[in-house]
Write a protein that binds this DNA or RNA. Sequence first.
DNA 1: TCAAAAGTGTTGGACCTACACCCATGT
DNA 2: ACATGGGTGTAGGTCCAACACTTTTGA
Lengths: 282, 282
Amino acid sequence: MEKEEYFKPSVTVDTIIFTIRDSEVENYRKLPEKKFQILLVKRSQEPYKDKWSLPGTFVGKEERFEEAVNRCLEEKANVKNIYLEQLYSWGEPSRDPRGRVISTSYMGLVDSNEIKIKAGKNVEDVEWFTIKLNTLKETNKENKDGYYKTEDIQILLEGKNKVLKSKVRVVKELVNGNLIIYTQILKSDLAFDHAKVLIYAIERLKNKVEYTTIAFNLMPKTFTLTQLQQVYEILLDKPLLKANFRRKIADMVIETDGQEENAGHRPSKLYKFNTNWQPHVF
Amino acid sequence: MEKEEYFKPSVTVDTIIFTIRDSEVENYRKLPEKKFQILLVKRSQEPYKDKWSLPGTFVGKEERFEEAVNRCLEEKANVKNIYLEQLYSWGEPSRDPRGRVISTSYMGLVDSNEIKIKAGKNVEDVEWFTIKLNTLKETNKENKDGYYKTEDIQILLEGKNKVLKSKVRVVKELVNGNLIIYTQILKSDLAFDHAKVLIYAIERLKNKVEYTTIAFNLMPKTFTLTQLQQVYEILLDKPLLKANFRRKIADMVIETDGQEENAGHRPSKLYKFNTNWQPHVF
DNA sequence: TCAAAAGTGTTGGACCTACACCCATGT
DNA sequence: ACATGGGTGTAGGTCCAACACTTTTGA
């Protein structure tokens, strides 16, 4: 906090908005599968003109971060009133070709039926992309002081008639007993370092699903327990046993008197979130 | 990411460095108690001249955040080579009287014997302060959609011949099932919004102690299990049962052939951190 | 009738809590 | 001898994974 010989960078916010959406059903009996999606906008200006990117904006002079996020989402994509949390601030000097731009990223979660996106200001197009991650290669060096693991991940983002492909290397390094995780972009169809931000956000979401009720932000007001389980399965990326899942989330939901009908099988009860749920006391 | 009509704020990094230090012992048999401490510097310039604050600096033109943190710590306090992690970015328009200054805060942990602090550039003094937190008042309103809880916390920071007093209100609000936590400063002897940052850092540290090995960054290379337990107890702010604690951390440590002697009681084995420890698989 | 999903019960094992107890040391 | 902490064993309860089984519906 010395004399003002220091320079001033630009500051932006970027938001990763996730949702989960139903696929089409082939069979009147079968339940729809779930797709894990992210909202991207197509840039209409340099840099990265015509590339898809996370919705972001410069932060205004008297504007808080969250205000900038909400303004940006409403202006560019017609998205309002969603769950938001700050993720991380990215400060690499070279991350933006225009010069030094620092970006604070936020994660947003929304029920896929809640909003109708619409391309807005400075944006050519807005679209939901389905996220698919494939592990391509893993390495693992162990030494006496820890280890050095890499995982190459292919990120496929499927939009209408197009697929964006990126490839990142996630490095997990144990240094003095501290797990350090960072991501290198090997190739990316996304603008800026947004592939890295995406990976970071998915990791955070996965973690928080286990010990918070964050997943309920992806659900409609009422839902069946199987729908909820599908959301957990897609986020955790593994199948869960029905009986055990239901016991685990029993306290987090309240039965309503609604029912899902016309399904070709026994109708399921509709539940709502128990807003008074708290993690177990100790 | 429109035309550059946007203004540019200044960007700083601030670091909360924690350590744990032994108190004096009264009795040759007794073990020393532990004190939980934070490193503060005394500001030599406006704003907040002569106030104690977290060590911080403006981020240089071509400098990464972590580089700025390390430069600042070395220049101002002679601290190098410590564990660091990014915490949060604070962007309130009014948080700095000089104008819009955005601050990204980092948490640092260090073994109290590892470093010798020394006042440096633009700093009048550097000192370790012992942290004591007292809950003054709690309120709790429940309603059908969640709750609104406040906790007024007195922060006492005890340095040589002085005590810095602050008072904050931590608000935990359940909104649409999402727990939102924020802090209001009611009164603070610290510069800027640093009381808020301190509370945030303590909360993060407490959380991570439970499911990572972060606490080992506060330990010397070898240590007794009782010393380790003391550190856990002071961070979690509750007593732990010895037998159970030892079973819990058994995998995280490796016995060495050293012993603690001259203690007036049975000598205790010295352990070191098991750098290859990983959270349990599933 | 039957495919599909809704919904519940049981069992064995892992882990956690609380407490009790014995051991080794320096003065 | 004894205060102090080092170190370990065990009983009871809780939680969780895995699996099996019954129920209900629409075509």
